[in-house]
């Protein structure tokens, strides 16, 4: 399987296997008109299997989304065909405007102009609504 190299864009590597399509949707990549490659179930020494996303454009990437969906993912920034920066992600402390609170009693369901905000719990694994503290 041949996929052209990226000239100017990003390679999101070490995505947990099976999470690439969720990331593709949450990052809004379906709205781009540049080449985007979704590579699934690639053999990996570290993870066993992994997914990869390649984006051939300098779009604004929301790293919090990537850290939330797959905290072990890496993001390589490609400029003129070369890797200029490699970022290791972690679960972000806050997620703003990414998740929606499912608690029907939460103030976010009625208050105009209030952005959804979730905070990482003390366990370091789950997110809770900043306002009502319901789990994501």
């Amino acid at each position: 399987m041949n996929i052209d190299s990226i000239r100017d864009g990003y390679v999101i590597d070490h995505i947990a296997a099976g999470k690439a399509m969720r990331l593709y949707q949450m990052l809004g990549l379906d709205g781009l008109d540049c080449p985007v490659a979704v590579i699934k179930n690639v053999p990996s020494r570290k993870l066993g299997r992994k997914d990869i996303l390649k984006i051939d454009s300098r779009v604004d990437l929301d790293l919090d989304v990537i850290g939330y969906v797959s905290p072990n993912a890496t993001v390589s920034v490609i400029r003129d065909g070369k890797v200029t920066e490699k970022r290791h992600l972690a679960m972000p402390q806050r997620l703003v405007g990414i998740l929606t609170c499912r608690n029907p009693r939460c103030i976010t369901t009625t208050e105009q102009g209030l952005r959804q905000e979730f905070v990482l719990s003390a366990d370091g694994r789950t997110y809770c609504c900043k306002y009502c503290e319901s789990p994501a």
Partner: peptide, 26 residues
């Protein structure tokens, strides 16, 4: 307020102290 977390919104927009006198089941 019947909605949970409403006092937090209130506190963010208030010039004076806000006391939560009960917010939903929170």
């Amino acid at each position: 307020h019947p909605k949970e977390g409403a006092p937090m919104v209130a506190a963010a927009h208030s010039l004076v102290p806000v006391i939560n006198a009960g917010d939903g089941g929170h």
